[in-house]
Design a binder for these strands. Sequence first.
RNA 1: ACCCCUGUAGCUCAGCGGAUUAGAGCGCAACGUUGCGGACGUUGAGGUCGAAGGUUCGAAUCCUUUCAGGGGUGCCA
Length: 628
Amino acid sequence: MTEQYLGIPVPVLSESNIPITKPDLLNMPRSNQYIWTATQRDLISHLVGLNPVLAEAGMRATEPSPNVAADLTVICHEMAGRLRKSPAQIAQELAEGFNSDPNPPTIQEAIAQKGYLNFLLNMHIFGNQAISEVETYQDHYGEQNIGEGETVVIDCSSPNVAKYMSIGHLRSTIIGESLARINRAIGYKVIRDNHLGDWGTQFGMLARAHELWADDYEELSEGTDPVKGLYKLYVRIHEEVEKEKIAERERSGLDANEDVETALEREGRRWFQRLESGDERAIELLKWATQKSLAEFQRVYDVLGSRYEYMLGESFYIPMIPRVLEYMRERNIASIDETGAIVVDLSMKNLDKLVVQKTDGTSLYSTRDLATLVARCAWFNPHRIIYVVGEDQQRYFRQIFATFDMMTGNTGPQTEHVHFGMIRLPEGKMSTRAGRVIFLEDLLTEAVDRARQKIDDLSRDLSREEKETIARQVGVGAVVFFDLGQGRERSIKFDWDSALSFTGRSAPYIQYAYARMRALLQRAQKEQMELRYDLPIEVTNQPGNALIKHLSKFPEAITRAAQTSRPDILAEYIFRAADLFTTLYDRVRIVNEPDSVRRNSLLRLTQASAQVVKNGLDLLCIEAPERM
RNA sequence: ACCCCUGUAGCUCAGCGGAUUAGAGCGCAACGUUGCGGACGUUGAGGUCGAAGGUUCGAAUCCUUUCAGGGGUGCCA
């Protein structure tokens, strides 16, 4: 029995590279069960109880400006028109009503202030609840069962065979991995599919280059460095094409910006035709190149900690192409134009035409992507498919999704292009051919080297193995945070020092705060201070209370990051958690606090902070070292 | 020509489902360790939120126009 979707049969799916795991729903809290959101909900329903008209006014509780000494606020200005009273009066009346009634237990009191209805939390009750939630759920703290029973497919990383991964691949790889973890944390079954670039005209070019010059590169022989050889072939053929273009333009007296087709390009395209029609020699070469490239990629993935359920690559979908095209033509979604190419007219959706088959009869990226969508629907029945691909393909994905919607009659899964800005070098756009390129593996190696140097300078009392592990965790963490710490949609200006920053708003700063938390907890243990969970939480200082409140907002931060596909929201959140702890650490003694109830509270707060930082770093694909 | 993204402190960036006095990091200046880890902390200087209009009791945030940078615009991926 072959699987199919839209009546199009799909290839048999091989076993996944790693087991496809479902989220541990039994241990997952329901969403909205957490104290922070529950408190807001209770607050609003309590106010509506006081004055039912408020329900229509769309009242909501928000966080006040940081300079206001309150934990939550209801802005009364927006209700003024409806209630025909001044904001100050509304706030005043509500505050009085609220304070004279029995309050929701987590709220201390309401204070009317300049038209704002401000609330103070009862930190005894709220704080106890917030910290015990972290203690109860531990590694699961922050998770929610929002996506229960649904599947998300994430298309990410997708490097090209026969080339090295550059720092340009960092974003898709790391944003994709982080989004996979975040979506899992809110209850989705997640399938990461690394859609390798292993098909297309470029491999026709490569085959031609191999045919011409393979003997010039001894790296290509078995046992040396085949990817380097393939890479050299790639660079060389593009250099040759460029030279031919210049010569051709001179010969025909054309401007530099006018495109000309060269003999080499024609030969490359012919090779691609042979590839698509199943030429065994060409396919053999490509298979070999893929195998060698995968080994290179895997080293990077191992260092970054990213894994993929599938790494199928574009070539996997080639057998589906005739049926996909047939399907589109039968339904008049695609048609042959005057040049003999098959195109999809998307003018109804205000988009340009999409070519799905070239004049020479070969397939395009678009053809393979549509086939891939069909196959993924058949295999995984996903609720949503996310493409983590650069912003330069925004227009393209609109065309693809619009075409796919026509194919399914809008009955397919949600499709979303999670686009991100390019990484730009100070010298300008990265270009392999111009030699302006930084390889991802070199960046990671340099990061680990610098971290190792730093550890040696500090001469901490650690074994060689420990130092090596920490250097990797810290160095790679710095690189990952450099990426995830910035807004997704803007382009990143790359320079070595900010990419490898170990101070300030960086992963090492957060990791350092975590290592200090662990050191404190270990010290407490060594001094026989058993944590007691029957004592109340008595923190009673500003940074401590701010930290407790912040920890209670972790689930909300995860939800927001998931809904907007923005890991940077979590990066900001975790940095803030580490920063608040560092402030607390500087202001109060924790292990040395004489009052035993206070000390116990501070230690439990430290433990909860460590748990949240660790959970958060994990969602960002950053490891949390116990010592550093 | 059109479409998308971006413009906030000297530099790199948060904030932009409007709301009480616009926030970080780096850099700069001055401090802090006989206190649980100084990869740290404290204080300070530094902003007409690209510009101009508009909506609103209230705009960095929403709308219009405009300037600047980046990306894209059928047979590459």
